[in-house]
């Protein structure tokens, strides 16, 4: 049945059907009916006549669209202006531009390149110092962690040893008490047990 299903589905999807597969479909009563009905629908599609559409108001579907060209132009202009401003600001920051307003007027000065280089070197030195300090601190912290770990382990082992010793002591005490009990029992039983074991003469 699943083979017939596959054949039928493939035919519906691709319109490919060999004579052999067709006779298989037609041999099965369920698939014969499905095949015949599907064929009928396919012929309905081929025979369907695209008759004239009744009168309707086509003009109502159209409306004025907004002037997209000018909108696009405006957006482009805005984008270009924003880009230009970003470039200008970046340049001002990079060149360390300074604006001064005084009684004499308004002045713009740019830092010389050598000054900037000096500042850069100072920054580099500061950065390396900070890195060294960080490294040292990290090493110290690691050492501390190792030492703390060692101490803790030592303490744990000592605790364990103490515990074991205590247990051993307790066990020994218990054994001694048990032995004493046994000894007392043996003392009491002594002669009577021997008398019970004598075999009478015949």
């Amino acid at each position: 049945m699943s083979d017939l299903n596959k054949i039928f589905e493939t035919w519906l999807n691709t319109a490919e059907l060999s004579e052999e597969n067709k006779s298989l479909l037609l041999a099965d009563p369920i698939f014969r009916e499905l095949y015949n009905n599907a064929t009928h629908w396919q012929s309905q599609d081929k025979g369907y006549e695209q008759t004239q559409v009744p009168q309707w108001d086509k003009e109502r579907t159209w409306f004025e669209k907004s002037d997209t060209k000018s909108l696009v132009f405006n957006l482009n202009w805005l984008n270009s202006a924003m880009l230009a401003m970003s470039v200008l600001l970046s340049t001002l920051v990079v060149t360390n531009t300074q604006f001064e307003v005084s009684e004499q007027g308004f002045s713009i000065t740019f830092n010389q390149i050598s000054k900037q280089e000096q500042q850069l070197d100072d920054l580099k030195v500061m950065l390396s110092q900070i890195q060294q300090e960080n490294g040292l601190q990290a090493w110290k912290m690691a050492q501390q962690a190792i030492d703390t770990g060692r101490t803790e382990r030592r303490e744990d082992i000592n605790t364990l040893i103490t515990y074991l010793k205590d247990q051993r002591l307790q066990d020994q005490t218990l054994i001694k008490l048990q032995l004493n009990d046994l000894a007392e029992q043996v003392e009491h039983q002594g002669s009577t047990t021997i008398a019970q074991n004598i075999i009478p003469e015949q």
Binding site: T51, V53, E59, T61, W62, K65, T68
Partner: peptide, 21 residues
């Protein structure tokens, strides 16, 4: 797409049949 009315009405004329049916 640009809002040309004649073009749009022509488009309707070309495709109204299949869509109507």
């Amino acid at each position: 797409k640009q809002g040309n009315k004649k073009a749009w009405l022509k488009l309707i004329k070309d495709y109204e049949k299949p869509i109507y049916h």
